[in-house]
């Protein structure tokens, strides 16, 4: 079930017809997209022996966008700030070459996501905040603040069991954190209510 691979000579991009019937075309399209991204990045390189060194220009652009966002946040223009931050993260994900140092890309994402999450929580976008928090956790960043925010988001979304599970995990990793303890009590209280135990 080979789907037709076509090559555009001008843009140097590959494309395939996506046949929804076959699941494996999903893997194919992912790979094609990955190749296209690599092509774009390599074409920009004049030196055939390009290294993983991160692109300084891009780093500057991303930082600028990030700082605009922070400025907007300080001026209470929350929606704007969120847009800026989202854009900054997108830039880091889409514009950087896939071979640029992973550490740099990771730090970009981790740093900016934290601010984005705070904005989302302020704006009440709990589900989006939750997704971003989970991504942050997946990247290996273990921090009591993340667990606090996650528990909070779950509670706001009325998922009391999940809130308690996460809060307990946070406490297991940071047993002395007072805020987590308070959160845990709150979770238990809400759960008791949910279960008709009060």
């Amino acid at each position: 079930m080979t789907t037709e691979l076509s090559y555009n000579g001008n843009s140097k991009q590959l494309s395939i017809e996506i046949d929804k019937k076959y699941e494996l075309t999903d893997a194919r399209s992912i790979n094609v997209n990955q190749i296209n991204k690599l092509t774009t990045a390599i074409i920009g390189e004049s030196n055939p022996n390009f290294t993983p060194k991160p692109n300084d220009n891009l780093s500057k652009m991303i930082r600028n966008m990030f700082e605009t966002g922070i400025k907007n946040m300080k001026q209470n223009k929350m929606q704007e700030a969120l847009k800026n931050l989202t854009l900054a993260i997108e830039m880091s994900q889409r514009k950087r070459a896939p071979y640029e140092a992973f550490q740099i890309q990771l730090q970009d994402v981790q740093f900016m996501l934290r601010q984005k999450i705070d904005l989302e929580l302020i704006l009440g976008k709990n589900l989006e905040a939750l997704q971003d928090l989970e991504m942050l956790l997946n990247t290996g960043l273990l921090d009591p603040e993340i667990f606090l925010r996650k528990t909070d988001a779950y509670l706001k979304l009325k998922q009391y069991n999940l809130a308690r599970v996460d809060c307990e995990r946070g406490l297991s990793l940071f047993p002395t954190n007072p805020k987590l303890k308070v959160m845990l009590n709150e979770c238990n209280r809400r759960l008791a209510e949910y279960n008709g135990d009060i």
């Binding site: 690599l38 993983p52 896939p98 071979y99 640029e100 992973f102 890309q105 994402v109």
Partner: peptide, 8 residues
Amino acid sequence: EICFNQAL
């Protein structure tokens, strides 16, 4: 590097 970045 590409492998890890692609995973991210």
